[in-house]
Amino acid sequence: MKLEERIAAGQLIESGDELTDEYRELLCGIIQFTANSEFMGAFAESEWIPRAPSYQRKLALIAKNQDEIGHAQMQYQLAEDLGRDREQMLTSLLAGENGFGNAFHYPADEWIDIGLLAWMLDGAAMQLQHSLMKTSYGPYARIMKRVCREEEFHIRHGEHIVREYATGSREKQERLQAGVDRWWSRAVMFFGLSDSRSEKSERMDELGIKPKTNDELRQQYFDTYVPKLRNYGIDIPDENLYYDEETEQWEYTPPDWEEFNRIVTEGGPETQARLDRRRTAFEETAWVRDALEAYDGTTANRFANNITA
């Protein structure tokens, strides 16, 4: 069966199937974007590991970052299986040639930023990841199932910090509100431009690669997060936000798309510093990867129990 017939018949595509160049390109594009976002998201948050404000929070933050690196690993591996080169993908990310989530271009100067990144921004990413559990490429859909299971913990972890601030001292409540004022429009922008039905997004839809549009995902996000934010006594910094009963859609002030475009193409306030730090780490550990490549395996088997025994 041809690829498009299979998709039309509701079949998942598997690694043994013959892919068209177009399908492979579009698929790799979104996989690289979600992989990069996991990676850079972890990178933004890990800056807080040394100074996480309690023993418990530190353990949770390390665990969360571990999950994100794991998610990135699984997705880069998948893109590799589809023909991309892992080093090359990392190199082009580090050279700033490759996109990742807008939120991870901004600084996280306060601890509450870490709570809000986990709750509001992972929550936004979760809308996309959840929809990708139904993507037409089976191996990607399977990865997304594990990703979503683990992301649930990230969101709980973030919400726990938010609740601590919402019910804490006046200073904490003020910092929380100021934090939401900073992050709200970034979360709204996370889903990307309103679907203009560009040829590319049309094809992503037809090929079942991205099952939900940017606007559908954004609306879903409002459904969940507007009541939650209000429940914590937080003012959402958009006077025009309301639910239109007739259209059954949320109306909102369009965010500053110019800023969005600038951030995702030219980078934000923290982009260069983060990419530089990661590039340095990449170069400083090259000798380790070289050693692995040179290892001839002569000492293997000592710990492995032979399963055929």
Binding site: I49, P50, N65, R278
Partner: peptide, 15 residues
């Protein structure tokens, strides 16, 4: 050890 999170030599080892 936690200083290696996100800057490990490979992602598998980072984990």
């Amino acid at each position: 050890f936690a200083e290696w999170v996100t800057v490990g030599p490979t992602m598998e080892e980072d984990n």
